[in-house]
Design a protein around this nucleic acid. Structure first.
Lengths: 214, 214
DNA sequence: CTTTTCAGAATTGTATACAATTATACCAGA
DNA sequence: TCTGGTATAATTGTATACAATTCTGAAAAG
């Protein structure tokens, strides 16, 4: 068997997670391991590993009839923002304290790419850079537990965030808010970084919850 | 093969998680799947499943040489409390809003058992009931994402919490603080439940960080 | 004595065969 | 027609065999 730097199990996990959180399978859909074996062309072993990881994230449930797709409901969304409002500012504040110049450059690059894509009306890429910006801050906070808590929450908003940044006016405001956060972090100002992040999450929440009908 | 209501994989996961978070394997220890096969007497399959779940929680890391034990450092502990301070009050507030009489009875029972064990100087049982109390509140918050975020954080403090409640004076204060929280939830008073919970976490943090030398 | 190379030993990743339970559908009887 | 039971199919849980890489140590060359 050839060498793969990333295992089949990891690939299957990322693909399934992405498909489920993008809304490809409606809530209530039931898949089976054999479905996935034939569809993905790998054996049950890596599929089972991916399934178990998704189950731990409460994105699916395994039943006697197969794999039940849970996805993310609007209630989940409200619950998630309630939490992010309380801890995402902490990540920015910590990042502002400890970020290095190299990390800052990486953060700036993701921001500039986002600003590049906004006027192009390219929601997919805007969302990609938007996500990257947040994830980099999680990582640069230097708080592993915070990263572990925020990352799943952030991923679960993916589908709704695409709809949000498809609105050009919101995409534009979001990029501006990111720049404000970036400036505070670059200035190593934890209080400003935190306040601006909380404000940003609040705006994102209002926009997403308003636009979401489900 | 006989029927088991709980799978081998689940049993292995709970056992390994408990052993690692109790400090049985010092940070840096390297295990292998075959070690665990011979020690636990099951095949690699359920062991691998448990390993992957532990890896997702960042309690271990898999390397080319085997399974590297990470455990929970004092830095992790500070990071964890920083987060709990910000969201554990939310769980209590939500629970105060929506808890049912049956759930309230369950919560009261765990509290009364804790109060029963404190004067007996039985740290293991005190910790068990202490943990149960917190977990019940997470569940009764009705916020799945919050539950998913808090449960791993709470589990990771396990080892340090045992040392803490082994101090009789702290065990006694902790039980009193729990009762205050319980009364606020029973009175369906979210603001009081939240404030008392934050105070409780703050006290627990101070005590645990002071007692911990690592 | 040191360094490099190569063989084998150890380890994880993957596939598959088997076990056991559970769901389903069909048939018989009331 | 409805109800109950039984056999078969479908599903997940577990064990094991195999593949591929990586580590280790010893031997040979300098």
């Amino acid at each position: 068997m050839e060498h793969r730097t990333v295992s089949l199990a990891e690939q299957v996990f990322e693909r399934l997670e992405n498909e489920i959180l993008s809304g490809k399978f409606p809530r209530g859909t039931v898949l089976t391991e054999m479905n996935l074996v034939t569809e993905l062309g790998v054996s049950r072993t890596p599929i089972r590993e991916a399934i178990h990881r998704l189950e731990q994230e409460h994105v699916i449930e395994t039943t006697t009839k197969g794999i039940l797709i849970l996805g993310v409901t609007k209630k989940d969304l409200r619950d998630i923002f309630e939490i992010r409002l309380r801890i995402e500012g902490l990540a920015s504040a910590e990042a502002a304290k400890r970020i290095t110049d190299e990390e800052l450059a990486e953060l700036r690059e993701s921001l500039e790419l986002q600003e590049f894509y906004v006027p192009k009306n390219d929601p997919e890429h805007v969302r990609g850079m938007d996500s990257l910006f947040h994830r980099l801050i999680y990582r640069f906070s230097g708080n592993t537990a915070l990263c572990d808590a925020l990352l799943p929450l952030h991923k679960k908003v993916m589908k709704y965030r695409l709809a949000s940044v498809s609105n050009h006016s919101r995409a534009s405001s979001s990029a501006k808010e990111h720049r404000m956060i970036y400036e505070a972090i670059a200035a190593h100002d934890p209080a400003a970084a935190e306040a601006r992040t909380v404000e940003h999450i609040k705006n994102a929440m209002e926009h997403i919850l308003k636009e979401t009908n489900e």
